[in-house]
């Protein structure tokens, strides 16, 4: 069972994140890059499946030079090798273009299953998994909170507001995961050391057979027209308890339709 995990480096949500006013893309130099949180769950799930079924786990990441740090971190969790798609032509690609580029890069790897986080903490479009499956012509199983494999097929529990649906597909397939699926492991020091020796294939757009006329900011199908900082939070309502505090809180919640 060979599994590819898609890993995206995103600005650390614990720091102040910015857009570059020049081209409205994420200012990646403004804050530390970390592995997109949901992708850590995807890596963990791949490692758990590997422990059960054998095979190899490959990390695929599209991003600039600094994404190397996140690739290394993914390898130090226990993945076997990585592919780093890095080309200036990809800068500013939107979700569809990114899915196309990733699909092309996947052509250089052998796999039975592709796993990714269901969305990233920066763009939060949540469509890359679905778009990727379309480009690859593979079944898509999204929002998984449980994944089981039996050699030729994959079955997931697809999280819904009410509970979950059980969805099944033949392999190969694309699966996106939600955070309920597992608890990502910490890297170990030995794996950190070993990660430095694990192979990381560097791919340019041409190596992956990517048509550069179909990617990048200039060719994007969507455009960020404008952006603004979120307005500062208004001061909250203070309830002073003079014997009827509970009633006041209940009235407030009822007015906001929480009750």
């Amino acid at each position: 069972m060979n599994i590819v995990v898609l890993v995206k480096q995103v600005p650390d949500t614990a720091t102040e994140r910015k857009l570059d006013p020049a081209d409205s893309t994420v200012d990646r130099a403004a804050s530390d890059g970390v592995i997109n949180e949901l992708d850590e769950y995807a890596i963990e799930e791949a490692l758990l499946l590997k422990e059960k079924h054998g095979g190899e786990v490959t990390i695929l990441s599209a991003g600039p030079d600094q994404a190397t740090d996140s690739i290394r971190k993914a390898l130090s969790m226990g993945a076997d090798k990585a592919v780093h798609l890095n080309d200036a032509a990809l800068h500013g690609s939107d979700a569809l273009q990114t899915a196309y580029a990733l699909a092309q890069a996947l052509g250089t790897v052998e796999y039975d299953l592709v796993i990714l986080g269901s969305e990233s903490t920066d763009a939060r479009t949540g469509v890359v998994g679905a778009a990727l499956a379309e480009y690859l012509g593979l079944p898509q199983l999204t929002l998984a909170n449980k994944v089981d494999i039996d050699g030729t097929s994959v079955r997931i529990q697809r999280q819904t507001d009410e509970g979950y649906d059980v969805v099944e597909a033949t392999l190969p397939a694309v699966v996106s995961v939600v955070e309920k699926i597992n608890e990502p492991r910490y890297p170990s020091f030995k794996l950190i050391m070993a990660a430095k020796k694990k192979p990381v294939a560097k791919l340019g757009a041409a190596d992956a057979g990517i048509d550069t006329a179909r990617v990048g900011l200039a060719n994007a199908t969507t455009e960020v027209v404008d952006f603004a900082a979120a307005p500062p939070r208004a001061a909250g309502t203070v309830v002073k308890d003079e014997g009827n505090g509970g009633v006041q809180i209940a009235d407030y919640l009822a007015a906001k339709k929480f009750l």
Binding site: S76, Y186, P187, S188, F189, I192, M193, K196
Partner: peptide, 16 residues
């Protein structure tokens, strides 16, 4: 660099 990675791992364990 490996010591720096080690400390990052430890900080994550401590805070987490």
């Amino acid at each position: 660099a490996e010591a720096a990675d080690l400390m990052e791992l430890v900080r994550g364990l401590v805070d987490g």
